[in-house]
Design a protein around this nucleic acid. Structure first.
Lengths: 225, 225
DNA sequence: TCGTAGCTTTACCAAATGGTAAAATTTCTT
DNA sequence: AAGAAATTTTACCATTTGGTAAAGCTACGA
């Protein structure tokens, strides 16, 4: 068997024109495929976020997924494709809070909501946050195009929205770009540097609430006109 | 030759009591040793900060240092020791700005100075920042003890200082722990997420100054009573 | 200038790792 | 139930990687 790699449309990279038989298998993924691809991606998220791309091994992913290594390579072309798939999936979720920042809403409320959504995500999806952080930390070798194509237009658009709010006097004027950076930095810090935070806060159970309260004060004071 | 591993005191782990001859070589490192150790550590900083611990190879470090791999293992016991040495050296530099935060100084000035020193370091030592970030990101496997022993007491001490400033009414009251986190997060962001910042700012040459101005506003507004 | 300690190179090795071929098994369709 | 298709397993393999042994070279003090 050739495996389903060439058969599934989302794997398409260089189609073989002569291989017409595979066209017949272009149907939607079976239940088994869905389940196993999900398992693999979840396992990979765990392993990649903990050890980084090069530190993660297919054997670890396989074990964590409860599948054999060749079985994993039946569903994905290789290690890199798993990583890229993960990154692509993540991108959407990750940008969603910024997408929903509403130009029609109350400026300060919108921004504080954004802060809190990002903070919630740091607590709810720390593995995703760390995967992302690891990729950027190493120079975004597998994600630079996505930053350009996906993040940049959105970033510019929302900077404009915020700038207009400031020009209209609804918010104190600061550089919107650095404002967004500081929101990302402060919220993701709780996921990305969790090991440090845990030590310094002695596992304080009120930490999450404390962070929310602090960040509310920080950005409210900055932005109130 | 046994190499100098057992001979240099700073490598001491499990001394062999019978090996008395090595005592005679307990003198200070030669010029060659200094030079090569420095070269190796500099190369290792470059490689580790770019690829992470497991992603870095001794061959890469060797090539970057202009030495052969066995030659590198003449100066260090192994990959891990290089990494740990780097981390230990870094720790001091990294904490220095916090150490010099002066309880006798003007509160707001002291904190803004701290912010600017950290921001300068992010621009001057991005590799060090990323090395540190990578280690924490992966759960600080080789640094947890240092966090406990080195960072924690300092952190607690400076939190007390800041808390007293707030209690005395010299600063607006917020949780000092989260304040420090947010200073770390916002300043180190420019080093750790440089790949992202570069894309989103279109290599704007005024970025550094813009960041400084923004962070000044951010923390001034937060902390002015 | 000669011997020795310090340094470097050459030639390896065992384990780990990403990946493949193909047989064996399960599942689906008719 | 039979045959085909999809899935999984077994048995490999080539490369990379951290590390070692030991020979060879260099520099320096006596």
């Amino acid at each position: 068997m050739l495996g389903l790699l060439k058969a599934l449309p989302f794997f398409a990279a260089g189609r073989e024109p002569e291989d017409l038989l595979t066209v017949s298998t272009d149907r939607k993924p079976s239940r088994i495929q869905m389940r196993n691809r999900r398992r693999i991606l979840d396992a990979a998220l765990e392993v990649f976020s903990q050890h980084g791309y090069r530190g993660a091994t297919l054997d670890q992913i396989a074990e964590s997924a409860g599948l054999s290594k060749p079985n994993i390579l039946y569903y994905f072309e290789g290690k890199e494709e798993i990583h890229i798939t993960l990154l692509n999936q993540l991108m959407e979720t990750w940008l969603d809070p910024l997408v929903t920042l509403d130009p029609q809403g109350d400026p300060l409320t919108e921004i504080l909501n954004y802060v809190h959504r990002k903070l919630d995500m740091a607590h709810e999806f720390p593995r995703e946050s760390r995967l992302f952080a690891g990729e950027i930390l190493q120079g975004a070798p597998r994600m630079a195009p996505h930053l350009q194509a996906g993040l940049q237009p959105l970033f510019d658009e929302k900077c404009d929205v915020i700038q207009k709010w400031m020009d209209a006097g609804h918010l104190n004027s600061v550089d919107p770009r650095h404002l967004i950076f500081s929101i990302w930095a402060t919220t993701q810090h709780y996921a990305d540097f969790a090991a440090q935070v845990r030590v310094l806060l002695h596992d304080d159970p009120g930490a999450q609430a404390g962070a929310a309260e602090y960040l509310t004060a920080l950005f409210t004071r900055l932005l109130k006109p």
